[in-house]
C-alpha cells in the first residue's frame, strides 16, 4: 500500500489495530513523516469541529412539502420513467409525414367523384326533342337509382375517413405537445402549453405531462402557464390535489398567488389547511398571506 493510502486510513481511523501499531512505530522512527501526519491530523480535526445547525424554518418547509406529497399519494400519479416518451418527437414527425401522405392518397379520388356527380347539364332542349330527353332522363334516373346505395356507402366512407383523420390529427397534436413539453427551451415548452390549451378533451398522457411540468419545470413562467392550462381541463380531484401539493412546495409568491386563485375558483376545499398554514407563516410574502386569508373565507362560504 502506498504511504498516502496508509496515512489516509490512519487519519480516518480505518486501520486495523495491528496495522495502527505498526504505523505508529514507523511514525516514532521517522520525524518527517510524523510532522506531516500531525499537521494533517490537526486540519482534519478542525474540519471535524465545524458544523452548521439546521433550523425550524427548514423543518417546517419540509414537513409542509411532505404533507402535500401525502395528499398526492392517494391518487394514481406514477412518475415512473417512460423511455418510450423519448421517442415521442420522432413518432410525431413520422406520424405527420404518414398522415400527409395518407391525406393525399385519400382526398384525390374523392374530389374526382364529387365533380362527376354534381356536373348535371341544364335542360334547354327544344320541345320536339322532348322524347329523347325524357328517355335520357329516365336512363340517368335508373343509373342514379342504381348508384344510390353506392353513393350512400361512399358518403359513409368519406365521413368515416374524416372522423379517422380527425382522430389522427388529435393524436399527432398530442404527440407534438408531449414532445414540446420536454424541450430544453422554455419558449418551446410554452408553445406546447398553448397547443395543449386548445385541446378539448386531452388524453391522460397529456394531463400527466402537464402535471410533471408543473412539478418539475425550472421556469416560473412555464409553471404559471401550466396552472392556467390545467384549469381549463376537467377539474378532477387529481388535478386539484396536484395544485394543492405544488402550493406546499413552492416559495415563489407569483406561483403561490396563481395557485391560490385557481384553487379558490376550483372550489378545492382540500386546500384549506394549506391556506391556513400560509396565512400564519411569517416568512411567506404578505400579499400571499392576505390572499390565503381571503381564500379561506371564500372556501368556507362554499362549505356552508
Amino acid at each position: 500500500m502506498l504511504n498516502e493510502q496508509i496515512i489516509t486510513d490512519y487519519l480516518l481511523g480505518h486501520l486495523s489495530e495491528a496495522e495502527r501499531v505498526v504505523f505508529e512505530q514507523r511514525l516514532s522512527a521517522d520525524p518527517v513523516l510524523r510532522k506531516e501526519v500531525e499537521e494533517l491530523r490537526r486540519v482534519w480535526q478542525v474540519l471535524q469541529n465545524v458544523e452548521a445547525e439546521t433550523d425550524i424554518e427548514m423543518d417546517s418547509k419540509f414537513y409542509r412539502a411532505l404533507q402535500g406529497e401525502k395528499m398526492l399519494e392517494t391518487t394514481v400519479v406514477a412518475f415512473k420513467p417512460q423511455p418510450w416518451q423519448n421517442y415521442m418527437r420522432y413518432a410525431a414527425a413520422i406520424a405527420g409525414i404518414t398522415l400527409t401522405f395518407w391525406i393525399g392518397r385519400q382526398t384525390a379520388p374523392t374530389q374526382i367523384e364529387y365533380r362527376t356527380i354534381t356536373a348535371a347539364p341544364p335542360v334547354t332542349k327544344p320541345i320536339d326533342s322532348l322524347q329523347p330527353i325524357q328517355q335520357q332522363e329516365s336512363i340517368t334516373e335508373v343509373a342514379n337509382l342504381a348508384d344510390e346505395p353506392k353513393k350512400k356507402s361512399k358518403d359513409e366512407t368519406i365521413a368515416q375517413q374524416i372522423a379517422s383523420l380527425r382522430r389522427n390529427m388529435k393524436m399527432t397534436q398530442e404527440l407534438v405537445i408531449l414532445g414540446l413539453l420536454k424541450d430544453r427551451s422554455a419558449s418551446e415548452r410554452l408553445k406546447g402549453l398553448n397547443y395543449a390549451a386548445a385541446l378539448n378533451d386531452p388524453k391522460p398522457a397529456v394531463i400527466q405531462a402537464l402535471i410533471k411540468t408543473l412539478r418539475e419545470d425550472e421556469s416560473l413562467n412555464v409553471r404559471l402557464s401550466t396552472i392556467e392550462t390545467l384549469e381549463r381541463f376537467k377539474q378532477t380531484d387529481e388535478v386539484k390535489r396536484v395544485l394543492v401539493s405544488q402550493l406546499t412546495q413552492t416559495d415563489e409568491p407569483a406561483e403561490q398567488t396563481s395557485l391560490i386563485e385557481t384553487l379558490v375558483r376550483m372550489k378545492a376545499k382540500e386546500s384549506l389547511p394549506i391556506f391556513e398554514q400560509l396565512q400564519k407563516d411569517e416568512k411567506v410574502d404578505n400579499s400571499v398571506r392576505l390572499l390565503a386569508r381571503s381564500g379561506i373565507g371564500e372556501l368556507s362560504m362554499i362549505t356552508e
Partner: peptide, 13 residues
C-alpha cells in the same frame, strides 16, 4: 479515493 483524500488533506493543510 484514498490518494485523492490524502492529496486533498495535504493541499488543505
Amino acid at each position: 479515493v484514498k490518494v485523492r483524500v490524502f492529496r486533498a488533506m495535504q493541499k488543505l493543510r
